[in-house]
Design a protein around this nucleic acid. Sequence first.
DNA 1: GATGAAATCCGAGTCAC
DNA 2: GTGACTCGGATTTCATC
Lengths: 154, 154
Amino acid sequence: MTSELDRIDLKMLRLLQNNGRLSNAELAQLVDVSAATCHRRTQRLFEEGYIKSVRAMIEPLKVDRGALVMVGVVLDRSTPESFGAFEKAVAKLSFVLDCNLVAGDFDYFLKIRVRDMADFNRIHGTQLIALPGVRQTRTFFVMKEVVDNAPLNF
Amino acid sequence: MTSELDRIDLKMLRLLQNNGRLSNAELAQLVDVSAATCHRRTQRLFEEGYIKSVRAMIEPLKVDRGALVMVGVVLDRSTPESFGAFEKAVAKLSFVLDCNLVAGDFDYFLKIRVRDMADFNRIHGTQLIALPGVRQTRTFFVMKEVVDNAPLNF
DNA sequence: GATGAAATCCGAGTCAC
DNA sequence: GTGACTCGGATTTCATC
């Protein structure tokens, strides 16, 4: 079912990753195939899951979410149930952009976006340390975003 | 210039964030305005920088970038020059998705996507520790992606 | 299997109001 | 802000290889 990608497919993926608003006609020109072929191929890239979605990237500052915070989390116990409960709860928190189970000094790393530091402190005190099984958290305030969500290179 | 957003603009931003492929006609229906109005508003959201871009989200596994790694970096010296040199160099590394200057035990946190652990180890040895001013790095392999790049909530 | 040309249809973009 | 109009692109059909 999921067949291989040729160089045209790869080029389309890269172009769409950088500009999801490209019209089918434009894309067709850029990869040098007919509009019909381009349309069919694009559909396939969606159907077969190469493109998960197309999203507008919102400027955080413009919608009052200028503060970025990384949080390392250590759980009480390392049982499957603990991890499951934590993950289920964290997935519901709308301010959590990333949550990754990692190997090392922490169990999880969270990437969080909120209005400001005061907002984070409130959330930390009420929602983060209240997550199931949390033993301790370590907060890393982001002072400067050097690279944010760069496109995937492949 | 950058005027306020009303509830219609906010709704449009949220809808476009979740589905950047929405046609103007569809979006107009969803927010209950005419197509012409919707078109003008969308243009404004782009022009005034509320929407930075629209991007296709590629499935990393499908393009052989299944390994995610968080790396904490400590620099030798904390001078503006050190930071500048590091940031300039790191911005050129295509496998770096995020790079943030943080307050705490590390100077920077990197989010990196590569093919696999072997690939990371090679890159770590040749490209990461070779970055200007790096004293030490701490690697956190991601064992499970619980939440990845969730849409911004506002 | 794939493609591209042509035909149809519908939405983008612009106008007057 | 809306409604109408035009034009171009999206989508389908079909012949072809």
